[in-house]
């Protein structure tokens, strides 16, 4: 089977890779590009552990083909911090103990970032429904929702 050549942008950098026609973006990120921050919890679009942002929208990278990334812009967890400066969501997740095992965390952070990018002042209900595609088995979601609220407040410049 011959490979497909793909040119894309990942976390702001130009990236080129070869992939098989049936290979998922998640497999490309993890196995070919070494970007293992995106996790596979199910491979069927049901857990959100593989969430990445493609052209501004959250996608399950396990449901996107590697070849589909051609000409797109992809954001992954590895690009979330600005150098050694964490994104407010990352800081608040740690401060609010919004992670226990942490396997779901990269996916939650990507999904939450996409939310705050379009809605800087979400209600609790909006947060809960936006994040309903991300499964967390450890926390019961309470501290995750609070961390997102706190990050949103900080990004709006309010004292959290």
């Amino acid at each position: 089977m011959s490979s497909i050549a793909v040119s894309t942008t990942i976390n702001g950098d130009d990236v080129e890779y070869l992939c098989q026609a049936d290979e998922t973006l998640l497999d490309v990120l993890r196995n070919r590009l070494g970007l293992m921050g995106s996790k596979e919890g199910c491979g069927t679009g049901d857990c959100g552990a593989c969430s990445t942002i493609m052209d501004g929208r959250v996608v399950c990278s396990c449901l996107v083909l590697g070849a589909e990334a051609q000409g797109r812009s992809i954001e992954t967890i590895e690009g979330m911090a600005n150098g050694s400066e964490l994104h407010p969501l990352q800081t608040k997740f740690i401060e609010h103990a919004a992670l226990q095992c942490g396997i779901c965390t990269p996916g939650f952070l990507m999904a939450a970032k996409a939310l705050l990018d379009v809605n800087p002042e979400p209600t609790e209900e909006e947060i809960r429904f936006w994040l309903a595609g991300n499964l967390c088995r450890c926390t019961g979601y309470d501290k995750i929702v609070r961390a997102v609220q706190a990050a949103a407040a900080e990004m709006r410049g309010e004292a959290a």
């Binding site: 199910c42 069927t44 857990c47 809960r128 595609g133 991300n134 019961g140 979601y141």
Partner: peptide
């Protein structure tokens, strides 16, 4: 045998605890 049909609680299913 998947999270679609074996449904664990999601964020919108729960209140603060």
């Amino acid at each position: 045998s998947g999270f679609l049909d074996y449904r664990i609680p999601v964020c919108s299913d729960l209140p603060m605890i």
